[in-house]
């Protein structure tokens, strides 16, 4: 029994790294995703953004993490940023591609008149995006953003490939040491599932916080 408890504690403490990767990754993903989605509407930036999104979505995350860790980060920063920072950058940029496409759908589904009304009232582009367009878009695409967050949570497990001691890696370590798979893998699965349920709960809370009555 005490062995089970210590396993739970050991694997569960990997949730700290998992959550750091998730929170860092989704924040970076949202910030860059918004920038990508807006830039995409400008003709001069569109080819660059479309190319970037296409490459990011067209290659495995596992590969992207390795490329960032072994090639890009050393080449760009001339130093080792560490597993956590590399993970956040790689997962964040990957997430940004998906977030930008989610936002694009939301932006394109808004009536064109909302942009025109902002223009007619003389609202400059920055304020139009920040105060008029994005608040409406984010409310409308919130379920998809929660979905993306849940996906990203599970993708953080790939950090194990560059040595990050997250939930998955710790479970694998116990399994490898004792040749016993059932217990550690089950503990890892339950931990992930619990985290996903917490995310879903938070997502529902935000969705229910009606920003405006009955959506138009």
């Amino acid at each position: 029994m005490s062995k089970l408890l210590s396993d739970v504690f050991y694997i569960g403490s990997g949730a700290a790294l998992t959550m750091e990767l998730l929170v860092g990754g989704i924040l970076l993903g949202l910030a860059l995703g918004v920038v990508f989605a807006i830039l995409r509407r400008y003709r001069w930036a569109r080819p660059v953004i479309c190319g970037l999104v296409s490459v990011i979505r067209g290659t495995p995350v596992l590969l992207q993490i390795s490329i960032f860790y072994f090639i890009l980060i050393p080449a760009l920063f001339r130093c080792d940023l560490g597993i956590r920072a590399t993970g956040i950058i790689a997962l964040g940029i990957n997430s940004a591609a998906y977030v930008s496409e989610i936002l694009r759908g939301g932006i394109e589904s808004l009536p064109k008149g909302q942009f025109e009304a902002a223009y007619a009232l003389g609202i400059p582009p920055f304020y139009m995006w920040r105060d008029i367009i994005l608040p409406q878009v984010i409310m409308n695409v919130l379920p998809s953003l929660v979905n993306e967050t849940v996906s990203l949570l599970k993708e953080t497990a790939l950090i194990a490939t560059i040595g990050g001691m997250d939930i998955t890696r710790r479970a694998q370590a116990i399994a490898a040491a004792r040749y016993e798979y059932f217990t550690p893998l089950c503990i890892a699965a339950v931990t992930y599932y619990a985290l996903v349920r917490i995310l879903e709960f938070i997502g529902k809370k935000i969705e229910n916080r009606k920003l405006y009555a009955e959506n138009m």
């Binding site: 009536p111 008149g113 909302q114 025109e116 009304a117 007619a120 009232l121 003389g122 609202i123 105060d131 008029i132 608040p135 409406q136 409310m139 920003l211 405006y212 959506n215 138009m216």
Partner: peptide
Amino acid sequence: FMFQDFQLFPHMTVLQNLVYT
């Protein structure tokens, strides 16, 4: 400019719609 379909900002109250600009 008054739009045919009004184009009020749905996430703002009536007062906010007026005073935002």
